[in-house]
């Protein structure tokens, strides 16, 4: 997985969901405190990341996703597990939406 591509993709998802300029979204930008996103938007962002990369992020990990850096870190972990065929963490093959 190309990290730059993943970063751009997540930035674009946040832009789509919350109408925030991707350039405003830095690695350590806090989704709630800096971008004014709420929990529902956060869930939509995670849902779209899951669909795009056919992964399924656990609720415990989901709670950690409060910055772009953390979203990238967690997505990379899950994508890696998916590629390794770890069905316990990625049970569902979901259609990509984009």
């Amino acid at each position: 997985m190309d990290k730059t591509e993943l970063t751009d993709a997540i930035r674009n998802i946040i832009h789509d969901v919350a109408d925030i300029d991707p350039a405003q979204i830095k690695g350590d930008t806090h989704f709630v405190k800096d971008l004014g996103m709420d929990s529902l938007m956060g869930l939509e962002v995670v849902a779209l990341i899951e669909r795009r990369y056919s992964i399924k992020i656990s609720e415990d990990d989901l709670m950690q996703i409060l910055t772009l850096d953390k979203a990238i870190e967690i997505a990379i972990q899950y994508i890696g597990k998916e590629k390794a065929g770890d069905s316990a963490t990625s049970p569902n093959k979901i259609h990509e939406v984009q």
């Binding site: 969901v17 849902a47 939406v97």
Partner: peptide, 21 residues
Amino acid sequence: NFEYFKQMAEHFKNIMGELGH
């Protein structure tokens, strides 16, 4: 509380994922 939110998160992720697009 966070535990309740986690219980609801899966339900809402499914809704928002489908609907958002």
